[in-house]
Nucleic acid binder design. Structure first.
Lengths: 214, 214
DNA sequence: GTCTATATACAGATAGAC
DNA sequence: GTCTATCTGTATATAGAC
C-alpha cells in the first residue's frame, strides 16, 4: 500500500487544486453536510464564487474531492516477493495500518460514508459517487484476496495448516483489522495505543495458521 | 442485552414524547446535521414552535433523544447463570448481534458519531461530553469485562487454557465483533450474510480458548 | 401547551465587473 | 479566472394569540 501523490508548494498550486485539497480535508474532517462552501473557500483562500466557476455544485466538488483521495493508492505486491509467507502476512498487516495512519482523514471519511450509506445523490444510478465507494470496495477485496493467496501458498509449502479454508480465514482477518481500526477511531485512541492489540492479534493469528512441526 | 421499552399507543402519548420518539428515529436514520426540526415536527405531528417550548434548542433535543435511545439496554447477566463457560460466551456473542440487529438505526448512529468524533469524548475523563456517549462506552466495557470474567472462570474450572490473559483475549474478541459489525454496515450487508462469518469466528475462538483434553 | 406568524442567520448558487 | 455583491431558499429560534 503506497502513495504517490506529487505534492507541490501551497502557493504555486492552481486555485482549482487548492480548492480540491481544502475540500478533501474538510469533508473528511467534518463530513459533507456540516462543511459549508464558505469554509472551503476560506480554507482554500479563494472566494465562494470561484468554487462555482470550477465546479457545478457542492456535490460535484465533493465527488471530485473523493476521487482525488482514492486514486493514489494501491497494494504493492512487488514488495512482498521473496519473503516467507508469515513475513508476507506481517508485512501486509503493517502496511495496512501504515496506510491508515498516513491517511486518517480519508479513511475516517470513507468509513463514515459507508457506515451511513451516504453515497450522496441517493444510491440510484447516475451518481458517479458510487465509483469512489466502488474503489474502496475493490481495495478491501484486494487486501482480502492477497491474504487468501498468501495463506494458500503457505499451505502448499507446508508452513500453514492445510485444514483451513484460505478465503474464510482471510475474511476473518480483514474483519479483525477493520475492527481494530473502528475501535481506534471510535474510542478516539491513537494508532500507538492500538499497537499492543495488533501485536497480540498477529501472535494469535500465527498460532492458528502455523503447522505443528512437520 | 434486553430492551424494556414501555410503548404506548401513538395518539395517547404527550406531545413531548411524540417529539422525542420522532427525533430519536430521524436523528438515527439521517444524522444530526441533515435532520431539520421541521421534519421532526412533521413526523411528530406538532408545530415547530412546540419543539422549542419543550426543548431549549436543537442540540438539547438531540441529546435527550440520544439518551432515550440508550437507557433501556443492559446486559442481562442472570440469563447466563448455570451455563457452561463456552455456552455463556456463545450466548453473549449472540445477544450482542441480536441487540445490534434490533437497533440498527441507533447502533449505526452511535458508530457514526463516534467515528466522526462528533461528540466530545475520548474514553478518559475530562469530556463533559454527552452522557450518551459515556453510556455507549460503559456498555462496550461491560461486554468486554463480561467476556474477560467468563474466560477467567473457565480457566479456573479447567475448560480454558491457563496461558491466556483474559483481558487481552476479551479485548481482541470485542474488536472482532465490532469488526463484523462495521463490515456489515459498511458493505451494506445484512445480518444474515454475516452469520457465516460469525459462526466461523466462534469456532476459531473455541479452538483457541479450549484446553486440550485434560 | 399548542398554535400562526415572523425574525434572523446562513446555506448554496448566480450576475456581472475586472 | 477571480472577485464583490446579491438572490433565494430554508434553518433555527422567538413573539404572541388562544
Amino acid at each position: 500500500m503506497t502513495e504517490d501523490r506529487h505534492s507541490q508548494p501551497e502557493e504555486m498550486r492552481a486555485a482549482r487544486e487548492k480548492i480540491l485539497a481544502a475540500a478533501a480535508r474538510l469533508f473528511a474532517e467534518r463530513g459533507y453536510e456540516s462543511t459549508s462552501l464558505a469554509e472551503v473557500a476560506r480554507a482554500a483562500k479563494v472566494s465562494k464564487a470561484l468554487i462555482f466557476w470550477h465546479f457545478d455544485n457542492k456535490q460535484q466538488l465533493y465527488l471530485t474531492a473523493l476521487q482525488k483521495n482514492l486514486e493514489p493508492y494501491h497494494i504493492d505486491r512487488e514488495e512482498l516477493a521473496g519473503l516467507e509467507e508469515p513475513d508476507q502476512i506481517v508485512r501486509l498487516i503493517d502496511s495496512f495500518y501504515q496506510f491508515v495512519n498516513d491517511n486518517v482523514y480519508s479513511v475516517r471519511f470513507f468509513m463514515t460514508l459507508m457506515l451511513r450509506g451516504e453515497l450522496p445523490l441517493g444510491e440510484s444510478e447516475a451518481s458517479r459517487g458510487s465509483d469512489s465507494l466502488q474503489r474502496v470496495n475493490e481495495l478491501y477485496r484486494a487486501f482480502r484476496q492477497s491474504f487468501a493467496e498468501i495463506i494458500a501458498h503457505g499451505q502448499q509449502r507446508g508452513v500453514f495448516r492445510r485444514s483451513l479454508d484460505p478465503e474464510r480465514e482471510a475474511a476473518l482477518m480483514l474483519v479483525t483489522l477493520v475492527g481494530v481500526l473502528a475501535q481506534q477511531f471510535m474510542l478516539g485512541e491513537t494508532f500507538e495505543s492500538s499497537k499492543g492489540l495488533i501485536e497480540h492479534y498477529k501472535q494469535t493469528l500465527f498460532e492458528r495458521l502455523r503447522c505443528a512441526e512437520p
